[in-house]
Nucleic acid binder design. Sequence first.
DNA 1: CTTCCTGCAAAGGCTTTGCAAAGCT
DNA 2: AGCTTTGCAAAGCCTTTGCAGGAAG
Lengths: 163, 163
Amino acid sequence: MRRVTEPPVLDESGLDRALDRLRQAVRRRGLKGSSVRDAIARAALQRRGHFSVDDLLKELRERGVTDVHTSTVYRVLPLLVEVGLLQMTLVSAGDGARYERAFEREHHDHLICTRCGKIVEFEVEAIEALQREVAERFGFRLTDHVHELLGTCKDCSAAAARG
Amino acid sequence: MRRVTEPPVLDESGLDRALDRLRQAVRRRGLKGSSVRDAIARAALQRRGHFSVDDLLKELRERGVTDVHTSTVYRVLPLLVEVGLLQMTLVSAGDGARYERAFEREHHDHLICTRCGKIVEFEVEAIEALQREVAERFGFRLTDHVHELLGTCKDCSAAAARG
DNA sequence: CTTCCTGCAAAGGCTTTGCAAAGCT
DNA sequence: AGCTTTGCAAAGCCTTTGCAGGAAG
């Protein structure tokens, strides 16, 4: 069992590799290139941690990329996920989708404090192995999983005990 | 690792025990009794498998309990979950909440075919133990978890291979 | 020149909220 | 009586969709 630490922001060469992957996927599917899509990918890939669609729109504006419409982001994100640049996370929160970078990033699950929102990222190879066993046992080909542990962190537990 | 089978529909005495638990919780919180709330609880507890708010409304109408408004169901469900009568599931589906009975029902996680929607319920004690270890290691008090394995079932894999 | 992409506006689907009437204790 | 619960209608939020003009190959 180990804690997975947040990686540094993707540097320029990492960004190039990511955009290459995107371009290849775009070509393979017979789609067309687009500077807007690239800008969205860049903004998403260089954001730290978890972000919502709205966060991403703000990030774009901060980068001077104005005029990118919400609906466009909604249309582009699924592709970025399929291609493996991003992944959807924090599904249990309920209020809107959250994304995080998946490209050149270790796999991990989340331990979430439901009081303060603190998030610990971890990885337990034994759990992953067991998940694969479960899928195999029931004849499934595993493509993904959602695994979030919900609880109260030490600080919040202490606060609750005091107050 | 074992498959968890769906339990039989809760019988009358089970329903009584469940409603007792609900009444006690209601009293403890200084709330008031309500036949509408009880009817919602009854309908929810006797439904098979997973259901949406809409399914529950239909179930109520089939039982002749008309006039129960959607918003009331939305207001009642959280209590039923807190009290342990129901639990929210299939979070990863995205489109609206799904519930299932939790009262006098074994804990289990879900293996879901993303093509046909087939659901296998399973339980792996080793995974549960590891989850507890993770929480402890990071100072969290675990209250819940979301654990869904997503993939393609045998039939759908075969269909995909053919077509 | 054909097909895809994008901004815009509108619609959709699920859920929440404000309010007044009705229901409990 | 005093507080909770409920139906109803309206609003909220996130997300999707239809369309027309613009961009890419």
